[in-house]
C-alpha cells in the first residue's frame, strides 16, 4: 500500500514537472521567435491539464504563426477558465479582426450575465439552494416558521435564477471553431458541391455526424465539414 502511494505521488509530481517544463520551454522558443515550436510545447503542457495562461500563450503562438483557427480556439478556451481576463479578450478580438471574423454584438442580458462565469453562477445557485434547504429543515423542525418560510422562498427563487444564468453563460456543447479555411459541402462526401466557405476561426455549431463529416450550422447556413476541419471549444465532450 505504501509503495502504491509513493508511486502515485511520483507520477503526479512528474506530471506537474513536465507540464511546467513544457510551459517554460514554450515561452523560451516563443521569445526566440519560433512560434510553431512554442505552440507544440504549449500543446504538450496542456496534455497535463488546462491552464488559462498556457492557453493564452498558445493562442499567441498560433497567432504569430498565422494560424487563426487554432489561435482563436485557444483564446476561447482560455476565456472559459478566465472569463474576465482583459488580456485574453483583447488578443481574441485582435486575432478575430485579423482573421476577418465578425460576430454580432452580444445582447444586453448576455453582456450583463457575463460579469460572472458559468461556474460562478452555478456556485451561487448552489449556495442559494443550500439556504433554501436550511429553511426547509427549519420548517421541518418548526423553528422560526415565518423566517424559515421566507428563506425557502428566497433561496429557491435565487437558485432558479442563478441556474438559468449559469445555463445561459455556459458554453454550448456543440460550439466548435473552424481550424482552417474550408469549403462547407452540401453532403457528407468530399466530392459534394460547396455551399459556402467557412473561414479559419469561424465559430459554428456542430450537428449530426456522418462518417468523417460533421454537419455544421453557421448562422442560417448549413453544410458538412470534415471532422479534421473543426474542433469543439470544450473538448471533454468529444
Amino acid at each position: 500500500m505504501r509503495r502504491l502511494f509513493i508511486a502515485l505521488a511520483l507520477v503526479l509530481v512528474s506530471g506537474v514537472a513536465s507540464a511546467d517544463d513544457a510551459f517554460v520551454a514554450g515561452n523560451r522558443v516563443a521569445v526566440a521567435g519560433d512560434a510553431k515550436a512554442a505552440a507544440a510545447d504549449f500543446e504538450r503542457s496542456l496534455a497535463h491539464g488546462w491552464s488559462a495562461a498556457t492557453l493564452f500563450d498558445l493562442g499567441n503562438a498560433y497567432a504569430t504563426a498565422g494560424d487563426w483557427g487554432h489561435s482563436i480556439l485557444a483564446y476561447e478556451r482560455a476565456e472559459l477558465l478566465a472569463p474576465r481576463d482583459p488580456a485574453i479578450a483583447a488578443n481574441l478580438a485582435h486575432v478575430r479582426a485579423d482573421a476577418g471574423i465578425t460576430s454580432p454584438p452580444p445582447r444586453t442580458v448576455d453582456r450583463t450575465l457575463a460579469v460572472l462565469s458559468a461556474d460562478e453562477w452555478t456556485w451561487i445557485a448552489v449556495g442559494a439552494g443550500a439556504l433554501a434547504c436550511l429553511g426547509l429543515v427549519a420548517l421541518g423542525w418548526a423553528y422560526r416558521r415565518r423566517a424559515a418560510g421566507m428563506l425557502v422562498i428566497a433561496g429557491s427563487l435565487a437558485a432558479a435564477l442563478c441556474g438559468v444564468a449559469a445555463a445561459r453563460t455556459a458554453p454550448s456543447a456543440d460550439s466548435a471553431i473552424v481550424l482552417a479555411r474550408t469549403e462547407v459541402r452540401l453532403a457528407p462526401v468530399a466530392t459534394a458541391d460547396a455551399v459556402f466557405v467557412a473561414p479559419a476561426g469561424e465559430e459554428v455549431r456542430l450537428g449530426a455526424e456522418h462518417g468523417n463529416f460533421f454537419q455544421v450550422h453557421d448562422g442560417d447556413r448549413m453544410g458538412w465539414l470534415p471532422r479534421a476541419a473543426v474542433e469543439r471549444v470544450v473538448p471533454s465532450l468529444q
Binding site: 497535463h48 491552464s51 458559468a118 455556459a170 458554453p171 471533454s236
Partner: peptide, 10 residues
C-alpha cells in the same frame, strides 16, 4: 491547472 474545461454543471 484544471482537469477539464467543461463547466461544473456538465
Amino acid at each position: 491547472v484544471h482537469a477539464t474545461l467543461a463547466p461544473l454543471a456538465w
